[in-house]
Design a binder for these strands. Sequence first.
RNA 1: GGUCUCGUGGCCGAGCGGCUAGGCACCGGUCUGCAAAACCGACUACAGCGGUUCGAAUCCGCUCGAGACCUCCA
Length: 393
Amino acid sequence: MEQMQPLEIVYKYNLNFIELQRIYNLLMPSIEPTATAHIQEQIEIIEQIISNGYAYLINGSVYFDTKKYMQDFDYGILSGRKVDELENETRVLNAQEEKRFFADFALWKKAGDDDMQIWRSPWGNGNPGWHIECTAMSTKYLGKHFDIHGGGMDLKFPHHEDEIAQSCSSLGCNPAKYWMHANMLNVNGQKMSKSLGNFFLPMEIIAGETALFKKAYSADVIRFFMMQAHYRSTLDFTEDALNAAEKGYERLMESLSLLENVSCNDSSSLDTKKLVDSFYSAMNDDFNAPILIANLFEAVKQINLLTEGKITCTILDKEELKNQLGGFIYNVLGLQGNTINSDGKLNPVMDLVLDLRQDARSKKDWSTSDKIRDGLAAAGIEVKDGNNETTWR
RNA sequence: GGUCUCGUGGCCGAGCGGCUAGGCACCGGUCUGCAAAACCGACUACAGCGGUUCGAAUCCGCUCGAGACCUCCA
């Protein structure tokens, strides 16, 4: 354990997390409240629950009265658990004798001797129970009823279930319209876990610092890879799957610049509306990003046909497709498209090198041109001879 | 032990009663000095065994396998 103050630990890992959010192009939250800065709000919610008759005080601790709650509300509505079935499933835990009923949970816990942080409350010194902070903070900043509450699958029960109970008993309603639970991550078919040693940190995989994979993958590729699975499904990280995602990602991004160069026509044989509608309907169906991506690849195919002049489109269609495709790639999927040649200094150098190679090629000096190509390949740069120009990456 | 979820082609991964996604790999072709890249085409799977149905990857049952959760850590 690191020898630090509690706040020091919070600060350190928070800075780290913010950096991670930036690299992975996650939208920054407008507010990131902390539980310790909202003790008063938590106390107020507990008081509300008590005065509504759904909690009781005992020995300086406050417990939620689940039995009473069940008379008026449906406990287990989210997770589908039945309290009478739960009783014999419950594991034996320490210090539970205070509770009147096994399913009761702490709203406020009296301070113990080894507690590092203690707060004052109407019930004496102590600290808040482990569900109440979410109720207090979400209510304060989002109101008593908001659209979406997210979280990992593992928090569904009891944490989210108890949040609902707290909101219903204090404010009279379920806090969220929709509960979204993200599933777990696997590595090579196994769950990612510390004890199995098959885990990696988000920073490590983009730095190529995990022994699990031979090479580094860009944050964009990781994002794209994860978007290919539905958020409710488990996702398996394997080398083959990541490499496949990388290829597909590059093809998708390439199509944007390809579309840029498409020449337009008076008439359109491209059904832009149908294509664009398919993007929206995929996301409207419970954020089905895998379907969205499949539909984006349908657009890629159409763009290739346009590029080859096999189908036509009007300027209006082209602009519409460009805006929508770009919007879905950049704003919806959150891809950045900046992974290739991030070092600006390299560009003029590569222009020169490829120019020299082109000179050699036009003189049919294959040994020189191949020497340049092989040398670049050894440096990790791939040369791609197109019909009109040579590109690299 | 209990509750729940999942098992899809070489790999990843959607679909969740009929129209049998998508990506990558493989194979065939176009292009190319060669190679690569790019593009086009082909590739028809749903753990097993029963059942329901005109029809099942999709519903039901059982078996096998994987996973999540089961209340004072958030």
